[in-house]
């Protein structure tokens, strides 16, 4: 299984924590597609607590955390 954790505004209309079958997604881009999250909406993307690129290949047991872009001041 792949655990997916969504943060802040990315939870709206989706939820907080999910589990996906490991064979249903190959990389983080697939995870984002599964939740209808566009690349531009995310600015911190972690796999097992480490910053990764969206193309990062996932394996069973990985934990993906997605944080929304924040840019105001």
């Amino acid at each position: 299984m792949i655990e997916v954790r969504l943060f802040a505004g990315l939870r709206e209309g989706r939820g907080k924590v999910f589990e996906l079958e490991a064979n249903s997604v190959s990389n983080v881009l697939d995870v984002m597609k599964h939740f209808s999250i566009r690349r531009e909406e995310v600015n911190i993307l972690l796999v097992n607590g480490f910053h990764q690129k969206p193309e990062y290949e996932l394996k069973d047991g990985d934990v993906v955390s997605l944080f929304p872009a924040v840019g105001g001041g």
Binding site: A8, G9, R38, E40, K53, P68, A69, V70, G72
Partner: peptide
């Protein structure tokens, strides 16, 4: 943004801002 805040220290040469905003983000 809204209810969310983030902050960090970036030392010269660590490339933090480029890593954080590598793709052109969309602030919804």
């Amino acid at each position: 943004s809204g209810w969310v805040a983030q902050c960090a220290v970036s030392m010269p040469g660590d490339g933090l801002i480029e890593k954080l905003f590598g793709a052109e983000p969309e602030i919804t």
